[in-house]
Design a protein around this nucleic acid. Structure first.
Length: 592
RNA sequence: GGCCGCGUGGCGCAAUUGAAUAGCGCAUCAGAUUUCGGCUCUGAGGGUUGGGGGUUUGAAUCCCUUCGCGGUCACCA
């Protein structure tokens, strides 16, 4: 029970007896540091329900609470703010109640309340890059946060494994590959296939140039370049289930999947269920037929099917081509429905997709709602901004992308260099060091990306992104490691296991107050799909701990009971840091 | 051009639901501690929250307007 829940009913009670008015809610705030008190009640919103001077009202409620609630020892009123001082005993009891709770703040999963979280969803013609990294980190973290808030979660992705872009790399390999394989080339499969995608583009550009030289105009040259026509032929063959093409497609896709598996493993993300576009690209057409009957969609003269969303402030959108084939929207409608068929407990979905598709998802959700699906009210587009480099925008064909594997290797390397300079890892084996560097490097990367609001674009500077100071992953990891060191030392001291203090140091109180927020933060983060909230909370906790650490001696204290308490408090802070970082997909090191 | 998003000290980011003097980190300066573990802590300087107007007891937050940046407006995905 935290103080807020305790006070809410008491305050309502107070207002009822003092002013004969009933309040729907009470507004709480942590008291600002410069004022005396632990929790603050804002009087202003009450003025709508009862008349009077805010200061007087505050005084009266304050008096009432001090008398009625044992945990409130005193109060002061400044303007419309009622600052309450909460007794040390309350915080001590609170801490005792959570100190052995292993899954503090986490809510047990309710099986009947499932969410499907989609993220990653790459194309199978090139390796993952920095943009995917943000996507994966966000999607994974949101999935874990939802779990922590008690939702059953299915992590999924839809693999873009078909289409003209896949045929391009297949064709280039067929023409120029000379049987090269990932083994023979010594390359990850996704890298190898990506190279042929680039190769295709080069040849294609050359062909266009030579056509233009022969007098053709640019636009038609782009459409008639022989290699492009060949790729289109290949797609037709694929759709006709041509054995040879399908075999090649399977082989090369498998190379890519093997490569992705490695990248996902180093990123630390996973999936419960994979969907493949090759299986879903025909879905949705039957639903369109149903919607057409219901009058949700309409048919144009050429046979194409549309939906008119002008009344909703959007425009008209096509859902079926005139030749009867599905478009992107059709597939997404069908896939969403398929997912609920596969997992009937799913009552909502989260789509982790870049903000260039904001409009698409707005339309998709609206269509699903109009089609009358009960779960359509619980769809969320986890939209995020682009990741730019100091050099500008990333473009795959121009080679200005940052490859995900290279990036992680770089971060690990940089973390290693910095740690090496700082020393203190003597006695570690090379393998242990490498492990640690990876934990730190990835911690830096993940925290750097997750701490900012997803909506904002990120300017990613690889050189500056590994930082060990301030609001960074490594700084928090470092604090965690320091706590572990304290615990190791403490375990040699033979401290009493019982403790209970009647008085708390202000810094101890502050740390407990910060711990107290953790369960609320998880709920809030889940409600807002916001890993950033967790990240920034963790940093606040670390700062609070450091201030505590600086101001009072933990192991130097002569009183064993106090020492034991402070060790327990440090331990709990460590646990919450680890717990919060786990939600973000970041590991914490025992030493660093 | 229509629609959507963003704009906060030099830089990078915060700020539940509209609340107290807009916080924090880097960087700069001055101290403290140097105790378990180094990069810990305290303080200072630095802001008309892009500009203008409005609603409100109260606005970074809501409304209008304007400027800047980005995205999107395909029978592509």
């Amino acid at each position: 029970m935290n103080i807020q829940n305790l006070l809410e009913t008491e305050v309502k009670e107070a207002v009822l007896t003092l002013f004969e008015a009933s309040l729907p809610t009470v507004e709480f705030q942590p008291t600002r540091k410069e004022f005396e008190g632990d929790i603050t009640i804002v009087i202003f919103p009450m003025l709508r329900f009862l008349k009077g001077n805010p200061v007087e009202i505050g005084q009266k409620i304050g008096n009432y609470l001090v008398n009625a609630v044992a945990e409130i020892t005193s109060f002061n009123v400044i303007k419309g703010f009622l600052n309450l001082v909460v007794s040390d005993g309350f915080y001590m009891n609170y801490f005792n109640s959570i100190k052995d709770e292993a899954s503090f703040g986490l809510i047990k999963i309710k099986e009947d309340d499932a969410v499907m979280v989609e993220y990653s969803s790459p194309n199978t013609n090139k390796p993952l890059h920095l943009g995917h990294v943000r996507n994966n980190l966000l999607g994974y973290a949101v999935a874990e946060i939802l779990k922590a808030a008690g939702k059953k979660v299915y992590k999924t992705q839809i693999v873009n494994d078909r289409g003209i872009h896949i045929c391009k790399s297949m064709l280039a390999w067929q023409k120029f590959g000379q049987g090269e394989t990932p083994e023979s080339a010594g390359l990850k499969g996704d890298k190898l296939v990506g190279n042929y995608y680039v190769k295709f583009d080069k040849v294609y550009k050359k062909e266009i140039a030579s056509l233009v030289e022969k007098g053709q105009d640019q636009a038609s040259a782009e459409k008639e370049a022989p290699i492009l026509l060949e790729a289109q032929q290949m797609l037709l063959k694929w759709e006709a289930h041509d054995e040879e093409v399908v075999a090649l497609w399977k082989k090369m896709n498998q190379w890519v999947y093997d490569g992705f598996a490695v990248t996902y493993k180093s990123l630390g993300v996973d999936f419960d269920k994979l969907y493949y576009e090759s299986n879903t690209y025909l879905l949705g057409k039957d639903v369109v037929a149903v919607g057409l009957e219901k009058g949700i969609f309409y048919k144009k003269e050429d046979g194409s099917v549309w939906i008119d969303l002008t009344e909703d402030g959007l425009d008209e959108k096509i859902v079926l081509r005139s030749d009867g084939t599905a478009v992107y929207m059709t597939q997404d409608i069908g896939t969403a429905i398929q997912r609920v068929k596969d997992y009937p407990d799913v009552g909502g979905m989260v789509y982790t997709v870049g903000n260039e598709q904001d409009y698409h998802f707005k339309v998709l959700f609206l269509i699903l709602k109009k089609l009358g699906f009960s779960w359509a009210d619980n769809l969320f587009h986890l939209s995020y901004g682009m990741v730019d480099l100091p050099s500008g925008k990333m473009k795959s064909r121009e080679g200005t992308v940052v490859d995900a594997d290279d990036l992680m290797a770089d971060m690990t390397q940089t973390a290693g260099n910095i740690a090496e300079e700082l020393g203190k890892l003597d006695g570690y084996s090379q393998a242990e060091k490498q492990d640690l560097y990876q934990i730190i490097g990835l911690g830096a990367l993940k925290y750097y990306i997750l701490k900012v609001d997803p909506k904002k674009r990120i300017l990613f500077n690889p050189e500056e992104s590994v930082d060990f100071q301030g609001n960074t992953g490594p700084f928090i990891q470092y604090t965690y490691a320091r706590i572990q060191s304290i615990l190791r030392k403490a375990s040699e001291l033979n401290l009493p296991d019982y403790f209970g203090l009647s008085e708390l140091h202000q810094k101890e109180k502050e740390v407990i107050k910060q711990l107290q927020l953790y369960p609320e933060i998880i709920q809030l983060a889940a409600a807002n799909y916001s890993p950033a909230l967790i990240a920034n909370y963790t940093y606040e906790l670390v700062k609070e701990f450091n201030s505590f650490y600086q101001n009072i001696s933990i192991l130097g204290e002569e009183d064993d009971t106090k020492k034991a308490f402070r060790v327990q408090l440090s331990k709990k802070v460590g646990e919450v840091i680890a717990s919060a970082f786990t939600l973000l997909g970041i590991q914490v090191p025992e030493r660093m």
